[in-house]
Design a protein around this nucleic acid. Structure first.
Length: 270
DNA sequence: AAATTCTCCTGAAGGC
DNA sequence: TGCCTTCAGGAGAATT
């Protein structure tokens, strides 16, 4: 399930293959995504050159000659670089063809998005209200502390709120809270600044390490070359309820917070 | 305003 | 073995 490290891995993986390349064809086999894919997409994209491949939050942005193509992988999406003759498989919804190679989007659950944008992407309604990048300079413990004052929401929900900080999904939220010794259910407004500094560092470190490993593959995430991500084996608490805590050995617990499964050690996290 | 719930969808897993 | 039910999850929209 793509979170920030998986999207970053994909971004780095596809960039060398598509940067500077001209779109020769676009094939849309399934328009029904989170938003319907524009009927005119093939005509719009054909002939344009990829100027840059970047990421904002979990959105991938292909900067073209006359606008940006926004791609979101939802929770089951993946992008692969394949030869254009490679037969599409089930759920391969979109091909963006660059001569011999094609950028192929697969998304079984179709929670993803493919959107052509002619306004500057950071001004688009989907992107303009997003919080800072967790690996960027605007994110810190002090920032989180300020944002949390007066709020009763569980800390796990706060750090998963993309208006506060982007890219922290369900897996890495549990991991970062474990690393910083904070119980995921704790009210955000009742956590000290000192602990927020630890939390911000934990968010940064867990995301950075996951990027190094090529992301986390639980079910269906694939890197651009088809390999899985290798961070799953580093997960200390996610989906490990009942197993011993890696630090103290007491059994890990599972709890549902905001309709999302969450995992923690009741002894190490308060 | 903030918090919670709903919604999209399919594949995996569990029950009988 | 096979059918049915349940669940997971990103994040915008709708509701409380």
């Amino acid at each position: 399930m793509p979170e920030l490290p998986e999207v970053e891995t994909t971004c780095r993986g596809i960039a060398p293959f598509v940067n500077g390349k001209v779109v020769t064809d676009v094939i849309v086999r399934e328009h029904r995504m989170r938003q319907p894919i524009a009927e005119q997409l093939p005509q719009i994209l054909s002939g344009q050159t990829v100027q840059a491949v970047t990421r904002r939050a979990k959105y991938l942005l292909l900067q073209m000659d006359r606008g940006h193509l926004l791609l979101h992988l939802g929770m089951s999406g993946s992008l692969r670089i394949v030869d254009k003759e490679t037969p599409p498989q089930r759920h391969d919804h979109v091909d963006i063809v660059f001569g011999r190679i094609t950028l192929r989007l697969r998304d079984p659950r179709r929670f993803g998005m493919v959107l052509w944008m002619e306004v500057p992407p950071l001004q688009h309604p989907l992107l303009c209200k997003l919080g800072p990048e967790p690996l960027g300079d605007d994110f810190s413990g002090e920032y989180l502390y300020q944002k949390s004052r007066g709020r009763r929401v569980a800390i796990k929900q706060l750090i998963m709120n993309s208006l506060i900080v982007v890219g922290v999904g369900n897996i890495y939220a549990s991991e970062a809270l474990f690393r910083s010794g904070i119980r995921p259910t704790r009210a955000a407004g009742h956590i000290s600044e000192k602990r927020y500094v630890r939390l911000a560092q934990a968010i940064r470190s867990v995301l950075a390490e996951a990027i190094k490993q090529g992301g986390t593959t639980l079910r269906d995430f694939q890197q651009q070359d088809g390999r899985p991500g290798y961070f799953a084996q580093q997960l200390q608490v996610y989906a490990r309820q009942g197993e011993p805590c890696p630090d103290c050995g007491s059994p890990l617990k599972a709890v549902t917070i905001g309709q999302r499964s969450s995992y923690y050690c009741a002894k190490c996290q308060r």
